[in-house]
């Protein structure tokens, strides 16, 4: 079975380390915050100028001056810091954020990512994604492995306009967890019940398949 959105978030959360500053993009990446393992403390960075994003507010706590990068009302956790957009992107561009998790339309075997623009469709903008991928050493892309029509999104070369060049080193899809290294996807884990053959079939880019590909396990 392909992973659910929640399972994808759970799997990404296992990559969190104690003391990490983490930027989570919109969508599945945002859900990662719900699965931070016990005993691990991470500080969430929101690029509109908040380090130490807390939980969503109660009705009483809602404050229009307190939002995250997805424009949702949020709270600040104890020990949070708030600053300007320039300061926020100094952190991002300067490589101070330990892990960035964001979605993508396409990723290729050279680590290129396309996530902001589909020509011919309405283009709304890249927001902070180009800065995030240019600044981070450590990025995990979350995405579906193939389109609804079965077309692979893990490509030899991205077809859509890029968000960043040669910057992605890890990808979690609904079918597999992969690393990108030396011009190839390296299959590290597969979703429960998903065969290596299916992943091979749905990966258009160069794929390195080790002898043993462990199956992911989930508690629930």
């Amino acid at each position: 079975m392909a992973l659910t959105r929640e399972q994808m978030a759970q799997r990404v959360a296992r990559e969190l380390e104690d003391g990490f500053y983490v930027n989570l993009g919109i969508g599945i990446p945002t859900l990662v915050a719900n699965y931070v393992p016990d005993g691990i403390d991470v500080m969430l960075q929101s690029e509109n100028g908040l380090l130490g994003m807390g939980r969503f507010p109660t009705e009483e706590e809602v404050d229009p001056d307190m939002i995250n990068a997805g424009k949702q009302t949020v709270t600040a956790r104890p020990g949070a810091a708030i600053f300007s957009s320039a300061e926020s992107f100094a952190m991002i561009r300067g490589g101070h954020v330990d892990l960035t998790v964001l979605g993508a339309f396409e990723v290729d075997q050279e680590g290129n990512i396309a996530s902001w623009m589909v020509p011919g469709k309405l283009i709304k903008g890249m927001g902070g994604a180009m800065d995030l991928v240019a600044g981070a050493e450590n990025i995990i892309c979350t995405m579906t492995h193939a389109s609804k029509h079965g077309e692979s999104k893990l490509l030899e070369k991205c077809t859509l306009p890029l968000t960043g060049a040669g910057c992605i080193n890890r990808v979690l899809t609904d079918l597999a967890y992969l690393e990108i290294k030396d011009g190839a996807f390296i299959l590290k884990e597969r979703a429960p019940g998903v065969s290596v053959e299916e992943i091979i079939e749905k990966t258009a880019g160069k794929l390195v398949v080790p002898d043993h590909v462990p199956e992911m396990t989930f508690d629930v």
Binding site: R55, F56, P57, T58, E59, V62, P64, D65, I67, G70, K71, Q72, T73, V74
Partner: peptide, 10 residues
């Protein structure tokens, strides 16, 4: 007015 774009509560 301080309009809220995405009111999200727990």
């Amino acid at each position: 007015e301080k309009r809220i774009e995405k009111r999200t509560v727990r």
